[in-house]
């Protein structure tokens, strides 16, 4: 049995999305070499994982919610804002997952997979070279109705 939740202002889907999207305010999106699928957000970044790129979220990490679609596939979506959408690769390695953390990088709120297709974050190459420009053109959160 499927339950559906309201997406309007002050309704449950938007309230849940608003609570989650505020977590990484001024935080970081760290692209790491940790194997996709093994990035547990309830643990710290493994010592063996190299941070290849570090994007800093704006004070308001995500923008306003927008509703798309119609019942029963309606969604609420918001798009991330970074202090810079292009950063310099910190070291050479193969990108595999991302950690979304607080400002001090001490708390991880969620992790996601990184690859060249079929992953949460898609790059045209995961072979990061130290000093390369790494651009994240958009990063969105989607919550279904």
């Amino acid at each position: 049995m499927t339950a559906f939740f309201g997406t309007g202002a002050s309704n449950s889907v938007r309230a849940a999305l608003d609570a989650i999207k505020a977590l990484p305010n001024s935080g970081h999106l760290l692209i790491t070499t940790t194997a996709a699928g093994s990035a547990d957000p309830d643990s710290t970044i493994p010592s063996g994982a190299a941070v290849l790129a570090d994007f800093t979220f704006s004070a308001s990490a995500f923008g306003a919610d927008s509703t798309a679609g119609s019942f029963s596939t309606k969604t609420e979506t918001c798009t991330a804002s970074f202090s810079a959408s292009t950063v310099t690769a910190l070291q050479t390695g193969t990108a595999a997952s991302a950690y979304i953390t607080n400002a001090g990088k001490t708390v991880c709120y969620f992790t996601c997979s990184v690859g060249t297709s079929g992953t949460d974050i898609v790059f045209n190459s995961v072979a990061f070279s130290s000093g390369a420009n790494i651009t994240l053109s958009s990063f969105t959160l989607v919550m279904p109705q």
């Binding site: 990184v114 974050i121 898609v122 045209n124 390369a132 994240l136 990063f139 969105t140 989607v142 919550m143």
Partner: peptide, 21 residues
């Protein structure tokens, strides 16, 4: 021009549906 590849990407995280189950 140094031989270093510049990389571009995008991301979408779809959160799980709320559920009564």
């Amino acid at each position: 021009g140094s031989g270093i590849q510049d990389i571009t990407g995008y991301g979408t995280i779809t959160l799980p549906r709320l559920s009564t189950e």
